[in-house]
Design a protein around this nucleic acid. Structure first.
Lengths: 187, 187
DNA sequence: TAACGCATGTAAACCGTTACATGATTGA
DNA sequence: TCAATCATGTAACGGTTTACATGCGTTA
């Protein structure tokens, strides 16, 4: 249900192919909504059948044909309706790393610290990505499109990601200290 | 695949029914791993068939019969193996609220602020839950079980939830200020 | 008396990932 | 020459939610 609105959201900026949509998602919504091509193509097909989008086949030479999708009146209306209604529930979170940590009581202290350290590496890397690659991409798109108002929201969304990873990194650092200093060795 | 390990993790503390497992999850892992009974029962059945757990039927009066599951040697070994291997990838995040915000450029400023304010209410409530209900539950379970080492990890996991919601609340407050002061009205 | 808690389960529907299949062009 | 990029799609599988079905006891 939400992938549909994600796709409508991007198509609302202009006509694109499924392949383009995937790339845009990978560069922006990736960190709060992602999808694989194996899900995107069938979803677009269904949206076409339901009249939310139209499509035009564009032959290309040296490359496979493109199927360019554009949002319809019906699609626009459905998207606007979705935007105007508030999101009234928190999206349930899943985090394998935390689950793993939660159950780690039977492991040795050193092993727990090793796992936390690995997790820290991953989150530092992600934080760096937000601060550099993602930040640059957002600025690039803003200049390209000239969409100042939208651009502000894109940049603020990126800032959430940055704040989240900053918190995660700090948490892992602090937690490692606590485990190191306060946890007893296994008996 | 991960629900299996979640269930093994709880069964590792002692034999329980599917219904018990659901309640424990709702009170602890809920915020980083959750499941419905409609998924838990079939998963336990499969784990039984695969030899990871055993079960005993316990008749009760005035209440339906219980099916109490216990972890087996094979289950223990599989769980320990899972614990010892590091989690080498970040779990992809989904957050409908952020997705919605990301695409809100065509809404009026007031509407965006309204949505953010609603989200803020939800996150403040969740933060409060972490600080009170969840904190009390964790302390209760630690006293009940006397598991000091495990208890430390349960409490640290709760603290992640608290830190996360604190960051979220601060982000929403700051973001509302930015929108209020810096965003142009729709032209 | 209506709702909630206890307790189990199945079935349908839906969402999401991975693998398979095709095939030319471009860059390392 | 190998990998990546462009471009589309299907199929199999797996994970997740929701609805349905049952039924007694307790509490509001």
């Amino acid at each position: 249900m939400s992938l549909k609105f994600t796709l409508l959201g991007f198509l609302n900026y202009g006509p694109q192919t499924g392949y383009d949509l995937k790339k845009h998602m990978d560069n922006s919504t990736q960190f709060f909504w992602h999808a694989h091509l194996g899900q995107i193509y069938p979803t677009l097909k269904k949206m076409l059948a339901d009249g939310f989008v139209q499509s035009v086949d564009v032959p290309q030479d040296g490359k496979p044909d493109k199927k360019v999708y554009a949002i319809t009146e019906k699609g626009s209306a459905a998207f606007l309706k979705w935007l105007e209604d508030p999101i009234i529930q928190l999206t349930p979170t899943k985090d394998l790393g935390l689950l793993h940590f939660f159950f780690s009581g039977i492991l040795e202290k050193e092993k727990i610290l090793e796992h936390l350290s690995f997790s820290l590496t991953l989150h530092r890397k992600r934080l760096f990505e937000y601060q550099h690659e993602t930040a640059a991409y957002v600025q690039g798109i803003i200049k390209e499109t000239g969409l100042e108002r939208e651009g502000m929201l894109w940049e603020l969304s990126r800032q959430f990601g940055e704040a989240y990873e900053r918190t995660y990194v700090k948490y892992l650092e602090d937690t490692m200290e606590v485990i190191r200093n306060k946890m007893k060795e296994r008996s």
